[in-house]
């Protein structure tokens, strides 16, 4: 029987209240949102916070998905299920829908939150890579007010972020609406974390790739952005030959480690193939618009 170590439990009823509790209890305090990464880690004693601040009662403030004049705003307590079922997301940010169909399973998606997926910092977590491709920002609030952090700058290592212990993620914000996007993933079995996954979001102009961003999941010590590959693609006419070269460049840019989900060369090869497929699908979707 897996039992978490003892901890104190507090329920926050406002964002400000959550921040005060984080300040009062100090750095061994963790926020509890959906808990579907944190509680398994606590049961395995990989995490043993002294205090949990449960924020599920902030749903009234932080559970939403809306369009704000062309900017996508997703509240930190939006569940995976909310993202998967959002027509707004499906229409304009399709790679998030792609990713959500492959994140864990429906029961876990009923509990797991977007903010939690970002804050946890697992390099094999799908949403950070998808949000990197979208060029999204995290909105974090702390005692000194609010700031935004680009998702690609959020991580300093596995499970390590630039967030302060007193910060709470309140929102994911994406001001760029791509013409086409796609997320491809290879997993060992349904609902597993990625052996490798790739998110692509792009715009076309005059039949050429104008603006492209690529997020890579599970192939580095943090979520990665394939900047050199993006550079190679910019201004080019889409096609199989270009996708092939992009895949090879991205494979070089990735830095996978061998683990139970595959050897490093295998994961690199997945990157090569998945970048090609994601580009092809994203271009196809952009052309339909």
């Amino acid at each position: 029987m897996q039992v978490p170590a003892r901890f104190e439990y507090e329920v926050a009823t406002s964002v400000e209240g959550a921040i005060s509790l984080l300040q009062r209890y100090g750095s061994e305090t963790r926020l509890l949102a959906g808990g579907h990464s944190l509680i398994p880690m606590m049961k395995l004693r990989l995490a043993s916070p002294e205090v949990l601040v449960d924020i599920h009662r902030l749903d009234k403030d932080l559970r939403y998905i809306r369009d704000d004049g062309g900017t996508l705003r997703i509240g930190a307590l939006a569940r995976h299920k909310d993202v998967l079922e959002s027509e707004l997301v499906k229409e304009h940010y399709t790679l998030l829908t792609d990713a959500e169909t492959m994140i864990a399973d429906p029961l876990v998606r009923n509990m797991g939150t977007v903010g939690g997926a970002l804050a946890n910092g697992d390099p094999a977590e799908d949403l950070p890579a998808a949000f990197v491709a979208l060029g999204a920002e995290v909105v974090a609030r702390g005692p000194d007010g609010e700031r935004t952090i680009a998702v690609e700058d959020l991580y300093t290592g596995p499970y390590e972020t630039v967030l302060e212990p007193v910060d709470i993620i309140t929102e994911l914000r994406c001001s760029r609406q791509p013409a086409g996007s796609a997320y491809f993933k290879v997993e060992r079995r349904a609902g597993d974390y990625a052996s490798a996954a790739i998110g692509v979001a792009l715009n076309l102009a005059d039949g050429k790739i104008e603006d492209v961003r690529i997020g890579m999941c599970g192939v580095g010590s943090t979520t990665l952005r394939a900047r050199e590959t993006e550079e190679l693609l910019r201004g080019q006419r889409p096609g199989a030959e270009l996708y092939g070269r992009a895949g090879e460049r991205a494979a070089e840019e990735s830095n996978p480690l061998e683990d139970a989900r595959g050897t490093a060369p295998y994961k690199r090869d997945l990157v090569r193939v998945l970048v090609g497929r994601a580009l092809e699908k994203a271009v196809e979707r952009a052309e339909v618009v």
Binding site: L32, G35, I39, D54
Partner: peptide, 19 residues
């Protein structure tokens, strides 16, 4: 261990009773 929490099916081994 699936039960409904406020009408949604969830895995009760990964939810605290206090939640």
């Amino acid at each position: 261990c699936t039960v409904h929490l406020d009408g949604e099916p969830v895995k009760s081994c990964t939810i605290l009773a206090v939640r």
